[in-house]
Design a protein around this nucleic acid. Structure first.
Length: 270
DNA sequence: CGCACCCCCTGCCGGC
DNA sequence: TGCCGGCAGGGGGTGC
């Protein structure tokens, strides 16, 4: 579910709600996430202070006072919600953390595609193997241009490759390519520099706009306070098959590749 | 070695 | 009403 804007929204919630808190207890109710949690997961966290919360791509880094990082990925349906838990647990509440301020941090994940791990900076970097941050200065036209020269993949696949750019998923790939006027399944190698520049600019603009609207909620996503995002109301193409293009009124099309849908306007995008 | 495919898991929705 | 297939913001392993 969550892509960069949703994860960034959760990060901001957590920064506000739990930064500086000490972890009192850790209750692992279901260790079988994407990878089964390590046997010492709970003991490694107990007693630690969560000093700050960072984000890298779609991953959260909860920085601990022993210089290690509690890495969290939300998969498709993961939620991290802070609040008071008084015994009323829901199905798929997999990890419960009691904090020194009396609040709880609850990890809920219906499909269990999420990931948690603990390690030092090097270990986490090796585990995640991420490319550049799309909102950083090093995500430039030159950078993406170089990547397009050496691949036979589609531009959508390239943008969704986390080793190339970290944080773009299926929703924002379609949305940003609409903004750039490029079809999702166009081969990346056919793009010229101008088109590449438009894509870089569109990526930054769409991600920033989505963060400003606190991300997109389709069915599962909630931020750290349990609130949905609002950007889904501004989708130009995602989930709008057969609905009319907001620019030219042509029906939006959906095309699947490898089980994933791409949405685009056949007139506005080439 | 890049890339297409299939799998992981649960829930929901539409069609028959 | 009930069952079945398709689909869903994720990533990883495999085999060509």
């Amino acid at each position: 579910m969550p892509e960069l804007p949703e994860v960034e929204t959760v990060r901001r919630s957590l920064e506000r709600l739990i930064a500086g808190q000490t972890i009192l207890t850790v209750d692992v109710r279901e260790p079988r996430l994407r990878r089964t949690l390590a046997a010492d997961f709970a003991t490694a966290l107990a007693g630690r202070v969560v000093q700050q919360i960072k984000r890298r791509g779609k991953y959260l880094h909860l920085c601990l006072d022993d210089n290690r990082i509690w890495l969290i990925h939300l998969g498709m349906t993961g939620q991290l919600v802070v609040g008071i838990v008084n015994g009323d647990l829901l199905p798929h509440d997999h990890v419960l953390i009691a904090l020194s301020n009396g609040q709880s941090l609850r990890y809920h994940d219906t499909r269990r595609f999420g990931l948690m791990a603990i390690g030092n900076e090097e270990e986490i970097a090796a585990l995640t193997a991420l490319g550049v941050e799309p909102l950083s200065r090093i995500f430039t036209t030159d950078y993406l241009w170089a990547k397009t020269r050496t691949t036979r993949r589609t531009i959508k696949d390239l943008l969704m490759d986390q080793r190339v750019v970290a944080g773009i998923g299926n929703i924002y790939a379609s949305e940003l390519l609409f903004r750039a006027g490029i079809r999702p399944h166009r081969s990346a190698a056919t793009l010229n520099r101008q088109a590449t520049a438009r894509i870089v600019k569109a990526a930054k603009a769409v991600l920033r706009e989505a963060i400003n609207h606190r991300g997109s909620s389709i069915s599962d996503y909630l931020d750290g306070e349990g609130k949905p995002g609002a950007f889904q109301q501004r989708f130009r193409v995602y989930g709008r098959e057969d609905e009319s293009c907001r620019k030219c009124t042509t029906p939006i099309r959906r095309e699947t590749r490898g089980g994933r849908s791409a949405f685009f306007c056949p007139v506005c995008q080439r």
